[in-house]
């Protein structure tokens, strides 16, 4: 068995020691720190990403809350404005109605006064006409024109009797 040839042991041990020491030095000073750094960098990056995601999420939630409160405030304000406007409009309408009623009442009063004046005028004219007709009738019946004073008083008496 070639493995038991003792003369080969020294060269094998020598080169084993050399190559293993070289390997150990290379690993401990270059390779392993470098791999560890790469793994650590990746781990740190992942944690940072997770932290940033959590931060963004918190921001988004705060934003949603702010939006909701702003919306609620705006809605309340809109309702208040709506209510105030409604009241103002109602008040204005009531005022206009009142004014209109007053104007209408005034006009109605004026019209009634005009009608009353016209009626009085008409009544007065009717008496004149009645006196003329009565005087004319009396002149035709008697042949002589009656005294205008008598005719007027007779017409007045009849009108008063009939409540004209």
């Amino acid at each position: 068995m070639p493995q038991l040839d003792v003369s080969t042991y020294l060269p094998q041990l020598f080169w084993l020691a050399v190559s293993f020491i070289v390997l150990y030095v290379l690993m401990s000073t270059i390779a392993l720190p470098r791999i560890a750094a790469a793994i650590e960098a990746r781990r740190r990056r992942r944690e940072e990403d997770l932290d940033r995601a959590a931060q963004l999420r918190r921001d988004a939630e705060a934003l949603v809350a702010a939006y909701e409160s702003a919306r609620a405030a705006a809605r309340e304000q809109a309702q208040a404005t709506l209510r105030a406007t409604g009241e103002r409009l109602a008040a204005a309408a009531a005022e206009r109605q009142r004014q209109l009623t007053a104007v209408l009442a005034e006009r109605t009063g004026a019209a009634e006064r005009d009608i009353a004046a016209a009626k009085a005028r008409a009544l007065a004219e009717i008496r004149t006409v009645a006196a003329d007709v009565a005087a004319d009738l009396a002149a035709r019946l008697t042949g002589a024109p009656p005294d205008p004073q008598t005719v007027t008083s007779a017409v007045d008496r009849v009108a008063a009797e009939r409540a004209l």
């Binding site: 020294l10 060269p11 094998q12 080169w15 293993f20």
Partner: peptide, 13 residues
């Protein structure tokens, strides 16, 4: 001392 570079040493390299 014999520390010859052998086929074993080549494999280790």
């Amino acid at each position: 001392l014999d520390v010859s570079y052998t086929n074993a040493a080549l494999a280790m390299t």
